[in-house]
Design a protein around this nucleic acid. Structure first.
Lengths: 191, 191
DNA sequence: TTAATTTCTTAAGGTACCTTAAGTTCGCTA
DNA sequence: TAGCGAACTTAAGGTACCTTAAGAAATTAA
């Protein structure tokens, strides 16, 4: 199992002893999924918080009308789950699919609690992770409220140049909250 | 200074010793602001994280075109700040105004760090606070992407019945991302 | 390589929501 | 208690973005 990447992700915010490191590693499991497979489906129990070692994933919501809305993309070194349902033990509201072959390191809910209890430093780590996730979502809400589709698209290109390379326009459109047809029209008029 | 409310807010997630409690209290300051005053203005340094003891506040963003977008409302027992700028010591992007006379308990950035260092239990407290804020924002993004204005308005009424009583329709409209005129039209057709 | 599938594009017609502007009601302050 | 400014309403005309449908291009499967 490849753990150096996840350990340096963690080391960005907290320092672990060797013992703490091995304990953490004992709690995570590695999973490799082929392209276009499910990491999670709506209504399933959301068992895992996943760190993306490599690959690309997308979480999305399907409303009653059947329309997909992309909640987030996760590429190498990102964390992904249906956070609300993972933390509150509720059936998942979202789907998570692989966009290419992906390897993830996972921790289940019980072990997550054990980890926080045994190594309180992880409270700090996840506080910072949640903090960043919160402010990122808040900025996204602000942008959705105050910008046009064109501006949001330009901002997405600028903010996530790596993701742009790994996902389709249809998926970007559903992240921006517009139709693929309209995104296509926007792209045409700019170039 | 009235501290029982903020202490039971904290006690919902962590238990403090008497000593920890007094240390925490030594770090917070109390401020009462009249109606229609500023807790924060854009471009100012964002010094404080504020707990709303009583009253009602609103944080909002003003874009280049001068349009206001409401980011959040905070009534009694909520926490509010420009989180991104508070945590990263950047000039505020948002404004926070009182909608009525309000009393807030505040902690400045330096003391926030001292608190987390001296009483690591607060890492847990703020992890949970950030977690909840994150999942709330994520649900809002989902709703903004997948629902009509009418649906978002109904959902707002249901989710925040207390807030509805304390804010104007113009402010609700700017939270939903629609014009007050359109909100007025929506309300007409339903009743 | 071809066939099948999916993505991307184009275009015409439609709708949700906006802008402007005016009138009405509400809530302050004099 | 009147008068002023803000909030709310109404309505007409406008625009950003959607829906549908079809064809072209790219990707995948065989």
């Amino acid at each position: 199992m490849v753990t150096s990447k996840i350990l340096s992700n963690i080391a960005r915010h907290i320092s672990l002893t060797d013992e703490e490191t091995s304990f953490f590693i004992s709690l995570i499991t590695c999973k490799t999924l082929p392209k276009k497979s499910w990491l999670l489906q709506a209504d399933q129990e959301c068992r895992y918080l996943s760190y993306v070692h490599c690959g690309a994933l997308r979480s999305f919501y399907i409303d009653k009308a059947g329309k997909e809305s992309t909640i987030m993309f996760a590429v190498s070194d990102w964390w992904i789950t249906d956070m609300h349902c993972y933390l509150n033990n509720k059936p998942a509201m979202t789907h998570i699919e692989t966009l290419e072959e992906s390897t993830v390191l996972q921790i289940n809910r019980t072990d997550f609690d054990r980890l926080l209890e045994a190594v309180p430093k992880f409270e700090r780590f996840f506080r910072i992770l949640m903090q960043n996730a919160y402010t990122r979502e808040q900025l996204r809400v602000m942008e959705n409220l105050s910008s046009t589709a064109e501006e949001r698209y330009q901002s997405f290109l600028k903010k996530y140049p790596q993701i742009v390379k790994q996902v389709t326009q249809k998926q970007i459109a559903s992240y921006l909250g517009i139709t693929p047809e309209f995104l296509s029209a926007l792209r045409k008029q700019k170039n």
